[in-house]
Design a protein around this nucleic acid. Structure first.
Lengths: 149, 149
DNA sequence: CTTAATGCAAACGATTTGCACCGCC
DNA sequence: GGCGGTGCAAATCGTTTGCATTAAG
């Protein structure tokens, strides 16, 4: 785990006068160390082994908090639920409509794309933009092969 | 209502050998005539007056169907639910994090943006891209004013 | 010490399901 | 007239809530 990344996230919490609890620490670490875009339940199943009395309510709380602080982002999943993604360096997401898999895609000009979207939005609507989300939907390699049989 | 738009949507149904029922017709018309990004419940409340025995299950079915056919798109809303949007000419969405309002934003180069995203994704992941979604999150004009008081 | 944060379990509510009936093609 | 579509109500399940308890700063 890039320890620097973790420390930076903790700093963000401190800046907002948010208490750094063991629960928040392990959830944060989990998110940094996994790029599996977990659901609340995935996180819960993974962490309850090493942290036996951890409640789902706490995970919901923590994730909502992290999202507000811009540490993580929410992704709408194919099954209607939500997945979470630590958002260190900007990227967008490719979501498979068959198996639900989510893959990170690095986009060279992400920064300038965001600026362009932001500018257009502010001009047309007066919005003050905080962040942007980009997703593409389609079929992953495996499902293309599977479905063409 | 642009009748041509409606007819084109019906053609899409016919092409896929999907039956054109009165329920599907009025739901489709509702979506074409409103740019309010309705939830299932909004549609239900609006249509049950003129179509007394219409069940929510049918609306869920129809919307999922339309989405698969590419006639409408789903938007993740601030309250965790889903909103639906007839997707005639491409645009992206600005979503207010305070009041939940969703506004369409016309983006001049949307087509070329989509192609660029699509290309990058296919190169990096082997995905076959069907469509893309872009959303920006922030504060709308009204909420900026409201919150700075 | 003070007060935010947690755990637990009950409550909630949006979405789905099963099945008998209906009506589009 | 066959089969896809619909309505209805019950079941489901992810998420939220209320409150007593705990521990971070």
């Amino acid at each position: 785990m890039p320890n620097e990344t973790y420390q930076k996230a903790l700093d963000t919490l401190r800046e907002s006068k948010i208490r750094i609890t063991p629960q928040r620490q392990i959830i944060l670490k989990y998110l940094i160390n996994h790029d599996n875009h977990p659901s609340v339940d995935t996180i819960y199943e993974a962490l309850k082994k090493e942290f036996s009395n951890l409640s789902v309510a706490t995970i919901y709380n923590s994730l909502q908090l992290f999202e507000k602080l811009g540490i993580i982002i929410e992704l709408p999943a194919e099954d209607g639920g939500i997945r979470y993604d630590f958002f260190g360096n900007p990227h967008f997401h490719a979501i498979c409509e068959n198996c639900g898999k989510i893959i990170d895609v690095e986009y060279p000009d992400y920064k300038s794309l965001e600026q362009s979207l932001s500018k257009t939005t502010e001009e047309q609507t007066g919005f003050k933009v905080r962040q942007s989300h980009v997703e593409v939907y389609g079929l992953c390699k495996e499902c293309q092969a599977k479905l063409s049989k």
